[in-house]
């Protein structure tokens, strides 16, 4: 990928993040702790693989999808395509995870897991 492509991809992600942040209702909490909201449902092998990829590569900076040394993920309404682009390209302090680290199927799986985690909201028990 050329630098021009990287800049365009970065701009796309940044614009989406800014737009998402503006649209996010009241900066909702990113807390998805099991004792607070119940276990996240992972009915498929792909989602369970995504969980393990997340634990190995993402959890340390975004524990439970909350903020840590990286920003919170659970309250950002990014679609899977943008999640995957950011994983591959990195952004800001986030390093890139290239094909030498994560296979395409793993990136697909981790994006799907992150969306499942994000949707595991407190109000699901109502």
């Amino acid at each position: 990928m050329t630098w021009a492509h990287r800049i365009v991809a970065g701009c796309f992600i940044a614009a989406s993040i800014v737009a998402g942040a503006l649209l996010a209702p009241g900066c909702a909490s990113a807390r998805r702790d099991e004792p607070l909201v119940g276990p996240v449902e992972l009915p498929t092998p792909e989602l369970r693989m995504g969980q393990q990829v997340f634990m190995r590569h993402c959890y340390q900076c975004h524990p439970g999808g909350r903020a840590g040394v990286g920003p919170a993920l659970n309250n950002k309404p990014l679609p899977a395509a943008l999640i995957k682009t950011q994983v591959r390209q990195g952004l800001g302090e986030m390093p890139a995870f290239g094909t030498d680290i994560l296979r395409e199927t793993e990136v697909d799986a981790v994006a799907d897991y992150m969306i499942a985690l994000r949707q595991n909201k407190p109000d699901k028990r109502k």
Partner: peptide, 28 residues
């Protein structure tokens, strides 16, 4: 080092065979 939100302050349960980490006791 810098953190964007508090990290830790909880008890987590970890499955050593899979590496999966879940909160077990956290503050409300």
């Amino acid at each position: 080092g810098k953190v964007l939100e508090p990290v830790g302050y909880a008890v987590v349960r970890v499955d050593p065979s899979s590496g999966v980490i879940e909160s077990f006791a956290v503050n409300r």
